[in-house]
Design a protein around this nucleic acid. Structure first.
Lengths: 226, 226
DNA sequence: TACAGACCTGAACCTTATCTGAACAGGTAT
DNA sequence: ATACCTGTTCAGATAAGGTTCAGGTCTGTA
């Protein structure tokens, strides 16, 4: 999961970036509204954490621009100002959630989980696919009840696949969501990890669609919606 | 928009119901967890406002039940308890948003709008033609519910046909859209792939118009508009 | 009916996406 | 410092999928 953190306070930024990385997110940081708008426009984030009081361009304007351009990435707004009228205008600009400083990191993480989960079309916190289960909260996975030992990247790969199961996902989409901006585009790590993941969850679970990408099969081969 | 309001405090319930109705929502009210669970199970709400401190069955349990049953209705949790650990467990039970009492009605309405908007944003454009369906997001297709195994080029061909169904499409138009600039003009790959595609989706679906090109027939033989 | 041009099709060929094992490098724990 | 765990790179192997080719079939015209 790749996140854009738009926050100008250096201390808070550093602390949040650390917490988010620990939680398994790939984080890009934008210290002002201009940078935030540019990054959000060009990179495919799974979620954006947006401070309202940004230099250069303020948060609400950035958000409004994105929404006008049809961006649907979930946005969680962060603000020092507690005035509820701010919240209302934030929401109506297209925010999906709102958090007032100061806050507990735990709460931010919980809200993020809910946001990302909902954006992928899942209501339930536990991801299930055939015999494979993945608990994003505990960052653990199992196959047929048997717990899996996954490395960080294997886990993130599986997580992304399960969030979008039964959809074909291109290698570039995976790269864009598992790594931050500068990553060697024509590396074959994804293939290698696909191999390793397959070895662990069963080789027939992940179908490769030649020329398009990979697909996590829900059961055997039924199509989700007719 | 139809909303379920699960709240036991009579005063707050009355006041909220009024505000929500004013805002144009149709509101059903459940005064306890049992009623809430039953209603949420049977009626198709667009959103649920769920108090955590309900009599009979508490809110988190109700929510967990729904989620276990696969209900995906967006749920906004309401609570008097301000403890952030409550929020975390609420989110992880599958809540989509959270509001702590006391709150401004305006903020509740803003959050509702955000929630409903987000939930509705998932209508994916599915291309349909007779019994053939194609989901561009998932890069998958089916005929009469039966999933199709298409290769990359077959898929792209079908996709283009379905985007322009019931129109006659020339071979050169297809070539121009499926290949990059320099492609051997007098190759017969298109014909070959037409053959393969016909074999997979049924031979009578694609009509060849001699001298002009091909046409994907919507149903059996009618033409949509003259 | 005969002919020409357009289209179809099966099979062979060949390009290249993907797989895989092994080696390497950087970081972390012992 | 040493051993280990993870992520990355590389190169050879494999086979899926795209293209070509050589007839064969159909359709319209005269």
């Amino acid at each position: 999961m790749r996140i854009l953190l738009a926050e100008d306070d250096p201390d808070l930024s550093r602390q949040l970036k650390a917490s988010l990385s620990d939680a398994g997110y790939v984080v890009d940081h934008a210290p002002d509204g201009e940078e935030a708008h540019f990054l959000g426009d060009t990179e495919p984030y799974d979620c954006v954490i947006l401070d309202l009081g940004l230099p250069k361009i303020d948060g609400v304007s950035v958000l409004e621009k994105w929404r006008r351009d049809g961006k649907t990435t979930p946005v969680l707004i962060l603000t020092a100002r507690g005035a509820w009228s701010d919240k209302v205008s934030g929401f109506d600009a297209g925010a999906d959630d709102y958090l007032t400083k100061p806050f507990h990191t735990e709460e931010l993480l919980a809200r993020l989980r809910a946001l990302v989960r909902r954006a992928a079309g899942h209501a339930q916190p536990m991801l299930v696919c055939g015999g494979v289960r993945l608990d994003p909260r505990a960052a653990r996975a199992s196959v047929n009840g048997e717990p899996l030992r996954l490395t960080s990247l294997e886990y993130r790969l599986l997580h992304y696949l399960m969030m979008h199961q039964s959809r074909v996902i291109s290698r570039t989409e995976l790269v864009e969501h598992l790594y931050d901006q500068d990553f060697d585009r024509d590396s074959n790590t994804i293939e290698v990890f696909m191999g390793r993941l397959r070895k662990k969850i069963g080789t027939d679970r992940i179908e490769t669609v030649r020329g398009l990408g990979y697909r996590l099969k829900p059961l055997h081969d039924e199509i989700s919606d007719l």
